[in-house]
Nucleic acid binder design. Structure first.
Lengths: 228, 228
DNA sequence: CATGAAATCTACCAAGTGGTAAGTTCCGCT
DNA sequence: AGCGGAACTTACCACTTGGTAGATTTCATG
């Protein structure tokens, strides 16, 4: 449904199997519902229904609920944050950070996905949670990348930055997450982009001119359309 | 069980009814379990069992699961954050902020309660969630208090602070929340107190000498003892 | 000690959970 | 066309959920 393909398939590397298409549809549905109510509060039947199936049919594609969750999370990474992970580690640090501002701003169009991240990351504090390892490693990676970016940037700016790169990386990540919590509760009370620009400003970095949408990946509409 | 009271009750303002005591016991149990697994993932039977009761017995004291949650949250406020809400609005701003650093540091002894806040605030993004209003208003109040503190402080410091009080308040709150998320996932990787001190430092404020435990309220042990 | 209320239990309910088994329908391929 | 496997369904399972009804215990007080 999300990706409607015209009958006379034009030029695409490999047309997706029907199974692959339903798989994607299920993932869309799961992402939406997990986003709305967290992991535990959503049933396989809910997800299957939204995908136009029975929950048993769904289980034909995924071994279980947990597997579904980690695939949803993984796909979000591949879509949204491949900017962060895939980007050449030696990219110009300023560009790298600018991407983050852009992402923060863009997230303001996808409350569902933002909510997914917030809810699951909170639940995942429990080491038994299926997504625990995922989030631990995700934060490690992000902190590492950001630390290197800040270190490079501090050495490069005119009056060299006197901030601790590692600590600053942690603070920036924390602020991004915390802003999301507040913004989800009361969207009008929070401007995530402004807060991030202010954060950089206090480090002596001017990011006020970062475009709203830097060149993220090509497709992927802001949020998969609802079809209840 | 938690509070064993000697038969010859000594000097207490008003000895708590048995009902009040079990009520408190149930609230302790609920707080612990909600902290560990969020709201949806915990059953009334779990809570009742930990309190040494049947779930039906529990429901004699509380009208339902949701009511239990909001009472748990309310009690946490009365215990932990009454510093913030009860404090005279015109307290010396520096002292006020220092209290926050102290709270952040102290929270590092109570992962359970921190987890409760994180999980429920994430879930509560849904306007239908029983704790939605609670969190919206909590953040409003906190932002307001902090904004005033920063405003007062900016005007008072020697080179007047050039930061926006409202935005700074939001950023500080966001950082506190976000740090908790990371800290819950990987406690050794995060020093919440250090990050907050660094935050203030970037505003030109030195809070590095804030004592670990400022004068919080009198009693209330760091975390209610487990008794499984 | 009797009494009435509070506290608590046993037993039950209807609804929902994730998951399984065994059929049936559909689709792509040779 | 028709075969074979993928896709999907219906029906079921054992279990848990929040909540209720009514009986029974506990307890402070007269």
């Amino acid at each position: 449904m999300t990706d409607q393909i015209s009958p006379t398939e034009p030029a695409k590397p490999a047309k997706p199997t029907k199974g692959q298409r339903t798989r994607a549809r299920v993932l869309d549905a799961a992402a939406e519902l997990f986003s709305g109510s967290g992991f535990h509060a959503v049933s396989l039947r809910d997800i299957a229904a939204r995908a136009g199936m029975t929950h048993a049919g769904l289980l034909h594609h995924f071994p279980g609920k947990e597997a579904l969750l980690i695939e949803v999370l993984g796909r979000r990474d591949r879509e949204d944050a491949h900017v962060i992970f895939r980007l050449d580690p030696d990219t110009e640090p300023r560009d790298f950070l600018a991407q983050l501002v852009g992402i923060a701003h863009r997230n303001m169009n996808t409350p569902g996905l933002v909510g997914l991240h917030a809810k699951i990351s909170a639940e995942a504090a429990d080491p038994e949670h299926p997504a625990h390892r995922y989030f631990v490693e995700r934060y490690r990676l992000l902190r590492d990348r950001l630390t290197r970016a800040f270190a490079a940037l501090a050495a490069r700016t005119d009056p060299p930055g006197d901030y601790d790169p590692a600590l600053t990386a942690q603070m920036l990540l924390a602020q991004m997450d915390g802003l999301q919590t507040q913004w989800l509760l009361e969207p009008d009370a929070v401007d995530m982009r402004a807060a991030m620009v202010a954060f950089f400003a206090r480090l002596g970095l001017d990011f006020s001119d970062v475009p709203a949408f830097p060149n993220l990946h090509s497709g992927a509409p802001p949020e998969p359309p609802h079809h209840p």
